[in-house]
């Protein structure tokens, strides 16, 4: 079934079953592989993207639910890694293996769009679904505070 999706400001017509998770349409059909598969049950956050600015787990979001919305992936968060979260992540060298970081960055960006100066507790609440096996959590927390500073400038 042909569906039209707006991803990072570009329209894509895809021929997939409407119940297909958005994750696989992004990765396999459209070719945006920055969004990652981790658990498939919306509990690890590696697949986090924005739909109309809200963070969603794309692994359990049907592609049909994304029709008529604005989907933003890590590739569309900014041109040239200039979003304050990406700048802070780079400055503080957050990623280790990096596999979860697209999801971490998308979750952090969504948090900062709602709370310009989040507390540690607010960060923990917003980021609790994003698993990192390398254990970069401390630097993620620091980098979100740093991004808040950068965003305020």
């Amino acid at each position: 079934m042909a569906l039209t999706l707006s991803v990072n400001g570009t329209n894509h017509t895809v021929d997939v079953e409407p119940e297909t998770p958005l994750l696989w349409v992004l990765r396999d059909t459209i070719g945006l592989t920055g969004t990652k598969y981790g658990c498939g049950i919306a509990r690890c956050g590696a697949c986090t993207v924005h739909i109309d600015g809200q963070p969603v787990k794309s692994c359990n979001t049907k592609v049909s639910a994304a029709v008529g919305t604005r989907v933003t992936t890590i590739e569309g968060l900014s041109a040239n890694s200039t979003h304050p979260v990406q700048v802070a992540w780079t400055e503080m060298g957050v990623p280790q293996c990096g596999y979860c970081q697209s999801g971490q960055i998308m979750a952090a960006a969504a948090l900062l769009s709602k709370r310009a100066r989040p507390t540690d507790a607010e960060i923990d609440e917003a980021m609790v679904d994003n698993l990192c096996r390398c254990g970069t959590y401390l630097r993620i927390r620091s980098a979100i505070h740093r991004a808040a500073e950068l965003g305020a400038r």
Binding site: T33, G34, K36, E75, S81, Q86, T90, Q101
Partner: peptide, 21 residues
């Protein structure tokens, strides 16, 4: 020294095996 792979791990461009197409 900051790690060289960081810039590619903040914008989704770093290629993992699972991203092969």
């Amino acid at each position: 020294v900051q790690r060289l792979d960081i810039p590619h791990k903040v914008n989704g461009s770093a290629q993992y095996s699972i991203d092969t197409r």
